[in-house]
Design a protein around this nucleic acid. Structure first.
Ligand SMILES: [Mn+2]
Ligand SMILES: [Mn+2]
Ligand SMILES: [Zn+2]
Ligand SMILES: [Zn+2]
Lengths: 163, 163
DNA sequence: CATATAATGAAAATGATTTTCAATATCAAC
DNA sequence: GTTGATATTGAAAATCATTTTCATTATATG
């Protein structure tokens, strides 16, 4: 296929997404779970709190360990079950990367992208890109109908560079 | 963090990467394996051929099934072992996506990006983007040192739209 | 408080991948 | 071509993450 000379990409407002507080996030998620008919339990609170407080992405095993500090009897099974529900409701999302795809982080509203620390798992979200024209161009060249895209950056956060 | 108004992204030569022939690819990979001190065996040939011929990404299980047509006694273990070596040598790469991260496709030379059919696994590679300035801007905003990025598009290929 | 039932954790089951190991195939040296 | 060192093999067992099963417990509601 021939090379075309476009200037497809236009990034108008790149912006690192600012976080709401952990407490606020936790309260919101628990209320949301309850609204959907789910019950509020110690196990759920423990997992939700751990995720809401996290600065970095966490695996089920991470959450099991952290969550047990809050709720002694927490079972790994409940971690999986809570993650499943939070993901369904769009409150958390899986983090994919070269080092693995089994960690979760709290999701932001709307479409956005991730900057991931390959050492500690810290995630910064950003948004403001506009790949509409670019997507249209790719569709024309390839014959695909495009539904979704991922734009992700990997590196070392400030802390991990220092250490 | 404050919003900045840049025009970071500059796509100068988007281009769908053209393939070399399957036979050529297979010959090249086998020679490369041999150069690195690995022996040429029926099991390896079967897996290499299956990957070199593939138009779509394949899992270990896919390769086991396809490879057994060429080499009757092929074991699933050898599929995993061959994939491991091909990945080390940069000849194949894993395809990550919303639907899973366990499929492989032959890698292209140099840095490039993927357009993946969510129905059949077909993958088109493209290159020509230039995210250097964009990356530098993100580094400045975030304090990260960025090593790598993924830009991937997901959708339906022409065939799967028709079906 | 009583009740219906959603949610729980332990244990078993599953599924993918890795390890172990004795047998075999490859390749370099003769 | 034969030989021999050893890389590679597949079967079976082991491991690891995740899911399912199930009897018990906790939650929400009246
Ligand atoms: Mn985007
Ligand atoms: Mn790129
Ligand atoms: Zn870090
Ligand atoms: Zn397709």
């Amino acid at each position: 296929m021939a090379a075309l000379a476009y200037n497809f990409l236009d990034m108008t407002h790149p912006q690192i997404v600012t976080e709401q507080s952990a407490a606020e996030k936790s309260r919101h998620w628990l209320k949301y779970l309850q609204q959907r008919g789910y019950r509020l339990t110690g196990s759920r609170r423990a997992v939700v709190d751990a995720l809401a407080e996290a600065e970095r992405s966490l695996t089920a095993a991470d959450l099991y360990e952290i969550g047990r500090a809050k709720h002694k009897g927490l079972g790994l099974v409940s971690v999986y079950r809570t993650l499943e529900k939070l993901e369904e409701l769009g409150l958390v999302q899986r983090v994919h990367g070269p080092g693995g795809c089994h960690a979760y982080i709290s999701a932001q509203d709307g479409h956005n992208h991730m900057l991931v620390c390959e050492n500690c798992g810290r995630v910064e979200m950003f948004e403001g890109d506009d790949l509409k024209d670019f997507t249209r161009g790719l569709e024309k060249q390839s014959g695909f109908r495009i539904h979704e895209h991922w734009l992700q950056f990997f590196g070392l956060c400030a802390d991990c560079q220092a250490a």
